[in-house]
Every structure is written in structure tokens, then in C-alpha cells.
Amino acid sequence: MQPLVELYMQEKDSKTIMERVKDAMINTVNYTKIDEDNLCAVDIYIHKYKSIEEIDKIRQNLIDILPPNVGFVKTAHGGLHIYCNRNYQRIVSNRNVKVAITDSFDIDIFAQMNRNKIENGQETKEIIQNRVVAPNTSIREIKNNQRVTLKYEAINDWENVSHLASLKEILDKWNIDIEMSYKDSAQQQYDRIYGVQINDEGTIEQMNDELAQACVDGLKNLGIHNCYQPINMEVFLLSIFCGLYGISNESIRAEGIGNIRKFNKLSANADKNYGQIDLQD
């Protein structure tokens, strides 16, 4: 029998985005309030000084590397809202501003971590809610001394998407860990120490062979599980395969796949599923 929490999460996940936010729409300005604990929005702000062609290219590059089971909304200034599941990933606050910064765009994340306002470290009775502009919203602003109307537009079938991808899946595509300190994150961006790194145009840079070989050589003396185990020196089988299939050099990749069984201890389920995981397609 499945645990009640798991059944509850499956029921919520089967609902479309519109079913989850329909009671959180403010008709006056058509805002969507992010007041469900598992729904969050990633806001990509593409710098407005870019040309329309550059903005469109960056936005499409970002969409191309993301899973399809998310809600995509084009913002009024050409940026991107991405609706996904938080899946109870712990993040710092409801509003996480500029979790990543490039020369072309910034990334913010909005979620419902706290329902009540925090003052001086104490929870108050005041309710707080994040509000994200929904599709089909029009705003007006002055541009070149003229009033213009800008729209938020759904890119995919936004309101009917269900079984959303997780926030972690999306951030992993860009090699972003929002639980890292700013210092570590800045050092990571500088050194490019991870295998895949998002660049200023929203595309992916592959790791070089030297770094790939170092990663493969370090794939030893681990306890490998079929599902996530937050214990020292124990890792998740699928995450290893995802990393290895990000290596473009086929011989280094094959060596890494061989090292999984050769130098590590797999749990019974991980060993059973080892030969069934194939991410090449």
C-alpha cells in the first residue's frame, strides 16, 4: 500500500496548472498567486537593452534545453516564466531574486516557503503571497514618449500542463544550486568546475576531456542506490548516468559507466536497474 503522503502528492500532481491556481486569480490585474506549497515559478528576466532578435533567440535557447512538462509564458518584455513543481526542495525564501546572473539575463525563483510574514526571526500573523503575472495579461508603459501595450503570452498549452517537472530538474539543466552560498556560487561560475554550465546566450557548454576524465577517475568507493539517499558517500544511480551521458567523449563516458560496477557497491535495486538505464536517446 502506498503511503498517504505519496498518494496525496500524486493526486495534486495530476492536476493541471489552471486547476491548481484557478482560485488564486485576481481579476483586476490578472495576477496568479503562488500560494500552493508545491508550485513555483522561475522568472527569466532577459535584459531589455538586447535587440528583439537577440531576446527571442535567448528565450528559445532556454526553452530548448528544458523538459516539456512545464508551463511556459512569455513575459511582457520578452522574458520567460517557467511553472514547475518545487517537490519540497528547501530554498531560502518565497522570493529568491537573482539566484543566477549572466550578461544577458537574470533568474528569480518564486515559491511558497512561508505563508506568514517573518519579522526579527519570528513568524507573524500577516499572510504573505507571491504573485506572478498570468498569461493574457496586458500592461501599459511609456516608451519613446508613447504609451504602448505589452502582453504576457502563453507559449505552450500553459493551463493544461500537469505532472510538472521539478525545480531541481530545471536548475540542474543550468548547473545551478540555489542552496549554495553566494561565495561558492560565484567561485563555481568563475572556475567552471562542473560538467555543464549555462552561458550568456542560454545554451550549454560541455566539459572538456580533462575535467571529464577527472570525474570518471573519482567514481570510486561509493554506495550507489536506486533512489535518493541523503547520506555521506551514497549517491543516486540515475544522477550518475545523467552526468556520464553529459560527457561528449565516448571512450571516457564508457570508462565511467564501467567504473560504476567495478569500483562501487550497488544496492540490490540499483544493480537490477543498472542495465535498464539508457539516456542516449
Rank of each mutant, 00 (worst) to 15 (best):
Q2I: 15
L4T: 14
Y8V: 11
M9L: 15
Q10H: 06
Q10R: 12
D13R: 15
R20H: 01
R20Q: 12
K22G: 05
D23C: 03
A24D: 13
N27Y: 08
T28M: 12
T32Q: 10
D35W: 01
D37E: 15
N38K: 02
N38E: 07
C40N: 03
C40I: 10
A41I: 13
I46D: 05
H47A: 12
S51M: 08
E54G: 05
E54K: 11
I55Q: 13
L62Q: 06
L62V: 11
D64P: 09
I65D: 04
P68W: 01
P68Y: 03
P68Q: 11
F72G: 00
V73G: 06
A76H: 01
G79I: 05
L80S: 06
H81G: 04
Y83W: 12
C84S: 04
R86I: 00
I91T: 09
V92T: 04
S93C: 00
N94P: 05
R95D: 05
R95L: 01
N96I: 04
I101V: 07
D103P: 00
D106Q: 07
I109T: 00
I109F: 09
F110R: 06
M113K: 13
N114R: 09
R115I: 00
N116C: 12
N120W: 07
T124Y: 09
K125I: 03
K125A: 10
I127G: 01
N130W: 03
N130E: 14
R131A: 15
V133Y: 10
P135S: 10
N136G: 05
T137C: 15
T137A: 14
I139P: 00
I142P: 05
I142W: 10
N144V: 12
N145M: 14
Q146G: 10
R147S: 13
T149L: 13
Y152R: 10
I155V: 15
I155T: 08
E159N: 15
N160F: 08
V161H: 00
L167H: 02
K168R: 08
E169M: 03
N175A: 08
I178A: 01
M180W: 00
S181C: 00
Y182G: 03
K183L: 03
D184P: 00
S185C: 05
A186K: 07
D191M: 11
R192A: 01
V196A: 06
D200V: 08
G202L: 05
G202N: 05
G202P: 06
T203Y: 05
E205I: 13
Q206F: 02
N208E: 12
D209M: 06
D209E: 13
L211E: 03
C215I: 15
G218K: 05
L219E: 04
L219M: 06
L219V: 07
N221W: 13
L222H: 01
H225P: 01
Y228D: 08
Q229P: 03
N232P: 06
N232F: 08
N232D: 12
E234W: 01
V235A: 04
S239G: 13
I240S: 00
F241Q: 02
G243C: 04
I247H: 10
S248N: 11
S248L: 10
N249A: 02
E250W: 01
R253S: 07
A254I: 02
E255Q: 15
N259W: 04
R261K: 14
K262D: 09
F263S: 07
N264D: 06
L266E: 07
S267P: 02
A268P: 13
A270S: 11
A270W: 09
D271N: 12
N273Q: 12
G275E: 14
G275Q: 13
Q276G: 08
I277F: 01
I277C: 02
Q280W: 07
